[in-house]
Simulated scan of single mutants.
Amino acid sequence: MNSHSIHHLMQQGLRENVFPGAVLLVGSGDTRLFFEAYGKANLFSGQPMIREAVFDLASLTKPLATTLAVAKLVDQARISLDQPVVKWLPALAGSDKATISIRQLLCHQGGFPAHRLFYMTLKSLLPSRRKAAVLDLLKHTPLAYQPGETTLYSDLGFMLLCRLVEAVAGYPMNEFLKTEIYDPMGLTDLFFVDLTRDHLTRKPFAATELCPMRNRLLVGEVHDDNAWFAGGVDGHAGLFGTADAVFRLLRFLVADFRGRSSGSVFSTQILSDVFNGEGKHPLPLGFDRPSVQHSSAGRYFSANTVGHLGFTGVSVWMDLEKECCIILLTNRVHPFRWNTRLGQFRPFIHDRIMEHFEI
C-alpha cells in the first residue's frame, strides 16, 4: 500500500458523504509522514479545504485547552488536583458539589450528568449575564452519582473547570491559555473566538452546521450551543485550530513529558499525571484512552495511547509508546449534524494508515 491508497480512501470518504471535507495529518516523532486536505470547507461557497483550514475543535477543547490550563496552574503551585473545587468557587459551598475535587472533574468522575440544555435558560438572559449564570446552573444541577463513584463523560464538569481556571487566574481562560501556553509554544493557530468581543477573525474556517437555533450557517463561531450562549469561551468546547497546530502542541507536550524540551512549558511530573494518572487514580486527565473493543482509534494503537473525539467531526490519537499520532479533522456536521458515517470510517482509515506506515 502506498500514499496514493490513503488518498484513494479519503476520496472514497468524500464520495460516500462521510464528510464534505477533511484534513489528515499523520505524525511519527516530529515528522509529518502525511499531511493533506480533501474536499470542501464550505459546500455553499465552494471554498476548498486546505491544510491551513481552521476547524471548530469541539470537545478537543477538554484535553487541549482546559486540561492544560489546569495543569499550568498546578505547575505554578496555585492549585492542587486533589483539593475540592469549592476552595476557589465558594458559590458551591453547602451544595452537593462541595466535595468534588479538580481531579474528579478532569477524569469525568465529578458526579455530573453528561449534558444539560443550559442554553434554553441562557438565551433569555442579557448576553453580559450569561457566562456568570452558568455557575449557578451548574450548582443547581442535581448530581447523577456520588463524586468518585463511577466515570460518566460530562461536558458539565469541564464547564465548571473553566470557571475554576478563571477564578484562580483572575482573567478569561482563553487569555490565560494564550499567554501561558500557546504563545510560549509559538502556536498562533489555536484560539477561542470570544463572541463577547465580536471579533470574528478572517481565517480559513471550515463551516459547520446550518444551525436551527441561530438560523444561519456557522462559520468561525462555536457550534456547541451551551458554549455559544456563554460567549464562545468554555471548558467543554470553543477551541479552534488547524491540524498542524494540534500536531505541534502534541509534540511540545511529548517533549516536556520526556524531559527533552529546551524551553519547557510544563513539568514532567504534571504531564505524567495528565497522560497516565497516578497511584490510585490511573486515569488520564482530560484525555481519553482507546476502548478495548471497537475503538475509534482502530486496532494498532498501543495501550499507552491518549486522544479524544469532537462532535464536529474531529479527532486526535497519540501513541506515547510508538510516538506516533493521527489527527483527522473533518466538518462532518456540515451542513447537518445527522451525518454519522464517520464513526465507521475513522477506525478503518486509522488501520490502513498504521499498516501502510508499519507503525
Score class of each variant (00 low, 15 high):
Leu125Phe: 09
Leu125Lys: 13
Leu125Asp: 01
Leu126Ala: 15
Leu126Ser: 14
Arg129Phe: 15
Arg129Met: 12
Arg130Cys: 02
Arg130Ile: 11
Lys131Tyr: 15
Lys131Gln: 14
Ala132Val: 15
Ala132Asp: 15
Leu135Glu: 10
Leu135Phe: 15
Asp136Tyr: 09
Asp136Lys: 14
Leu137Ser: 13
Leu137Glu: 12
His140Pro: 10
His140Cys: 05
Pro142Cys: 04
Pro142Met: 02
Ala144Tyr: 08
Ala144Phe: 08
Gln146Met: 13
Pro147Lys: 12
Gly148His: 11
Glu149Ala: 14
Glu149Pro: 09
Thr150Trp: 05
Thr150Ile: 09
Thr150Cys: 10
Thr151Ser: 01
Thr151Ile: 05
Thr151Gly: 04
Thr151Arg: 13
Thr151Phe: 02
Leu152His: 05
Tyr153Gly: 00
Tyr153Pro: 00
Ser154Glu: 00
Asp155Arg: 04
Asp155Lys: 00
Asp155Ser: 01
Leu156Tyr: 12
Gly157Glu: 01
Gly157Ala: 05
Gly157Pro: 04
Phe158Arg: 00
Met159Val: 02
Met159Gly: 08
Met159Gln: 05
Leu160Cys: 04
Leu160Arg: 03
Leu161Gln: 06
Cys162Val: 00
Cys162Gln: 12
Cys162Ser: 05
Arg163Tyr: 11
Arg163Lys: 05
Leu164Arg: 09
Leu164Gln: 11
Leu164Ser: 06
Glu166Ile: 07
Val168Arg: 05
Ala169Trp: 01
Pro172Thr: 00
Pro172His: 02
Pro172Met: 01
Met173Asp: 10
Met173Cys: 09
Phe176His: 08
Phe176Ile: 02
Leu177Lys: 01
